[in-house]
């Protein structure tokens, strides 16, 4: 059985017919061709597939595409503007928050969700807010610095504006 869905994906609305059993991560990667969202553990444990649905972080590997009817989905592809990195992406780039890079899209989207709710998190709040994302390279120190750098950059821009 096909389900007909309308969603806003990275700011653009689209209509699709998807099988009821299609996962959002497969829809994003195979149907849409946006391969930025990664499949890590494939069971909701690692957080690599984290995307934002209606602004909230969610595992694309445990979400059915058909359930996203009427929602706004944001992936890692939505963050850059005209080829320029977002503050969080720049934070990860400059503070070496990415090593092998596989967890990074999920980390960045989890950080995006966190900073939208709490623009100035302390270290504990960053650790707690991103606890569902696992990284096997960095030991998290650099990731936390990356998110702090992004929060500072966003705050300084808001001060200037």
């Amino acid at each position: 059985m096909k389900n007909f869905i309308s969603m806003t994906l990275n700011g653009r609305s689209r209509d699709d017919a998807v099988p009821g059993n299609m996962l959002l991560v497969d829809f994003l990667r195979e149907t849409v061709g946006m391969t930025g969202t990664k499949i890590g553990c494939d069971g909701g444990e690692c957080g690599c597939c984290t995307v934002l649905i209606d602004g909230k972080p969610r595992h694309a590997c445990l979400t059915l595409a058909a359930s996203c009817d009427g929602t706004e989905v944001e992936t890692i592809e939505s963050l850059e503007t005209g080829g320029r990195l977002s503050a969080i992406q720049r934070g990860f780039h400059e503070k070496l928050g990415a090593q092998c890079g596989f967890c990074t899209p999920g980390m960045v989207m989890a950080a995006e969700g966190l900073l939208r709710e709490n623009a100035n998190p302390n270290e504990d709040e960053i650790r707690q807010g991103m606890a569902a994302n696992i990284c096997r390279c960095t030991g998290y120190v650099k990731i936390i610095e990356s998110v702090q750098a992004a929060a500072e950059e966003i705050a300084s821009k808001e001060d200037a504006a």
Binding site: G47, P57, R58, H59, T63, Q128, A131, A132, N133
Partner: peptide, 9 residues
């Protein structure tokens, strides 16, 4: 329960 992402949905 689990982590914050799981709790959000």
């Amino acid at each position: 329960v689990a982590g914050p992402t799981h709790q959000s949905y």
